[in-house]
Design a protein around this nucleic acid. Structure first.
Lengths: 233, 233
DNA sequence: GCAAAAGTGTTTCAATTACACCCATGT
DNA sequence: ACATGGGTGTAATTGAAACACTTTTGC
């Protein structure tokens, strides 16, 4: 509430910040659960190599570089830790409570979807590890809260927004897409109704090709239609 | 993508930031349109008193004080400019593109709802003025984008979330609440269906009192039930 | 009694759900 | 041919929208 020159303070020409700014990312992928074998949500965490919370697991991220946009910073740290590029990336929330860290840090958190690519299992580094999202222990800072918030956002958003393709290759069958929804929501969905609902949204279109080789009718392949190329959403 | 000690960078113990951090707030109130007289959305803007964008209108805000939570900072700047306390306050988005300002500033923006109180018309200061939201000119920085984004959020959120009471006194009639929805959405709503829909959500409860004095059946008064005291949503 | 807004009831229409059934393929 | 998942059809259920109707007040 300080007054400057007898006038109100104003944003966007702030005095030099005494608050640190970081960008972190919650990265989701679908992989089989180690016990049940059913697809479930995984995420990569990074072991902290300094105080505070030294040795504990935390979300990948880092300070915001002056030359990076926020989303670019998130994508970079994602790529650093997983070697992957995000197929979906969205800002989650800015966390900045005074008591969330011993020093004062505001974290702008993104969440991302990536494919369950093969080559990322152990290839990155000692200090990066993937965990089943529902079975992570206590994380550094308020990162448990952040992960839970991101999971909630994923599960609610998938019911009305076309994001499930973020877990898949560019071309996919409706069964694969339905399987993603089922894994995220944790319940079975009616194949017939799922098909109709999704096709009526206009979010996807058939590629014209289909998948041969299985001992049943070959399923058609579809691709996601980006917002700009859609007709009436 | 710098490596520190041969390890991955990590968030939340960032190196001293070379990026400034500000918190701004989009404040909405409902007041009669100066020409049509119908209730419409207004918001307060602050005239900039320094470069860049000197003399142009901008959102109220300021640098984040180390001792303030993000929401507290937003509420403070709101109170500074309008003299009001927010009846609803929510984080909107963190804007941080490199090119949004000559210097590098990340703005964490909140949006708020306040009552159309009498005493705030001109009483604050020379450099604060209220505008009809749909009739503001060109603002400083990317603040036009921010205002439009906040308006979109308000209009979509009011259809499924109980926020309209943020424009009203703690006790209100269903007609007042419906009028808020109509003003925000810009179209008429069926009184019968509106009543049923809203009561079925369990967001509000009757106070037991009603408003006498008008030449028609006296309407019952309702109050908003905060999330914690609700039963099933 | 009449106007005016509060509040209730009912009919219609659209969307979702549940589930029966046919289709195309590999073995 | 038959097992398997892909794909279509349809009746039942639910919920939203439209609108007629009753209630309670001031004048």
């Amino acid at each position: 509430m300080t007054l400057i020159d007898g006038q109100l303070e104003q944003a966007d020409n702030a005095t030099p910040a005494s608050v640190d700014l970081a960008v972190s990312t919650v990265v989701f992928a679908l992989r089989p659960h180690p016990i049940t074998g059913e697809d479930t949500i995984w995420l990569p965490l990074v072991r902290r190599i300094r105080e505070p919370f030294l040795g504990q697991w935390a979300l990948p991220g880092g300070p915001l570089a002056p030359e990076d946009d926020l989303a670019a910073s998130a994508a970079k740290s994602l790529n650093r830790t997983t070697g992957l590029k995000p197929r979906y990336l969205e800002q989650l929330y800015a966390f900045g409570n005074v008591n969330r860290s011993p020093d004062r840090v505001v974290s702008i958190v993104y969440w991302a979807l990536v494919r369950a690519s093969e080559d990322t299992r152990e290839s990155i580094g000692e200090n990066v590890e993937w965990f089943v999202a529902d079975e992570i222990g206590q994380l550094a800072f308020d990162h448990n809260d952040i992960v839970n918030y991101a999971l909630t956002r994923l599960r609610t958003k998938i019911t009305w927004s076309p994001i499930a393709h973020g877990f898949l290759d560019p071309e996919f069958t409706l069964a694969q897409l339905r399987s993603v929804h089922e894994s995220v929501l944790g319940r079975q969905l009616d194949p017939a109704n799922f098909r109709r609902q999704l096709l009526s949204t206009g979010f996807i279109e058939p590629t014209g090709t289909s998948v041969q080789g299985a001992s049943h009718r070959p399923p058609a392949l579809y691709r996601f239609i980006p917002r700009e190329k859609r007709n009436e959403p």
